[in-house]
C-alpha cells in the first residue's frame, strides 16, 4: 500500500504528543511500518505544534510536506487553517472547534480570522466537533486529546478495542476511566 500521512496540529500544552504516540502504537499493532515526528523544546510553550504520523509497508521520510497529508487532526480552529496547505486536495480534516487566541490577537495586533469552519468545509472533507465540551462531559477538560483520537479512530477500520488497549497502556491508571470515556465520546461524536 501507499504510505499514508496524518498530521496532528494544535497549541503547545494541548497534548498532541500523547495523541501521536497513541496513534503510532495502534498502527504498529496493526503491523504497519510507522514513523512519528515530534517537535520538543521552545515551540512546546504555547506555540503552534505539529506532529506527523506516517504509516504503510515501508515509510521513508518522517515528515509530511505541503500537499501531502491524507488527514489533518486539528486540536484548535486557527491551527486547522494554518495546516490547510499541508492537506492533499480533497483530504480529510478533523477539527476541534475550540478557539485559543494567539498572542498577536490577544495584543490586538491581529484579528482571529472569521469563517474558518466555512473555509475548511469548502476545501476539505470536514468533521468539526466541540471536543472541549466532550472532554468536560467525560470528566476532565484536559482529555481533549483523547476525544480527538476517538474522532480519528472512527475514520479508520482499526477495531475499537485495539485503540482502548493502547490507551490503557499509555495513560496513567488513575486517569484511565476518564480517558476511556473521552475516547468513546469522540468515537461516537
Amino acid at each position: 500500500m501507499e504510505t499514508r500521512s496524518i498530521m496532528i496540529v494544535g497549541v503547545g500544552g494541548q497534548g498532541t504528543l500523547l495523541a501521536s504516540r497513541i496513534l503510532g502504537n495502534v498502527l504498529l499493532r496493526q503491523g504497519f511500518d510507522v514513523k512519528v515526528s515530534e517537535v520538543h523544546g521552545m515551540s512546546q510553550r504555547g506555540g503552534s505544534v505539529v506532529t506527523y504520523v506516517r504509516y504503510g509497508e515501508k515509510v521513508c521520510a518522517p515528515i509530511v510536506d505541503k500537499g501531502g497529508a491524507d488527514t489533518v487532526l486539528a486540536f484548535e480552529l486557527l491551527e486547522a487553517k494554518r495546516a490547510l496547505p499541508y492537506l492533499k486536495p480533497g483530504g480529510r480534516m478533523l477539527v476541534n472547534t475550540q478557539q485559543i487566541d494567539p498572542m498577536p490577537v490577544i495584543m490586538g495586533n491581529a484579528a482571529y480570522p472569521a469563517g474558518i469552519t466555512d473555509e475548511l468545509k469548502e476545501k476539505s472533507e470536514l468533521t468539526a466537533v466541540d471536543a472541549l465540551s466532550l472532554a468536560r462531559q467525560a470528566g476532565n477538560q484536559k482529555a481533549v486529546n483523547v476525544v480527538l483520537i476517538g474522532l480519528l479512530a472512527k475514520t479508520t477500520d482499526i477495531p475499537f478495542d485495539v485503540w482502548t488497549d493502547v490507551l490503557a497502556e499509555t495513560v496513567p491508571a488513575k486517569f484511565l476511566e476518564v480517558n476511556k470515556q473521552a475516547f468513546s465520546l469522540g468515537y461516537h461524536a
Binding site: R82, P102, M103
Partner: peptide, 10 residues
Amino acid sequence: DTPVRPPVMC
C-alpha cells in the same frame, strides 16, 4: 492572513 502563534510563557 493566518495570524502567527509564537511560543509564550505558560
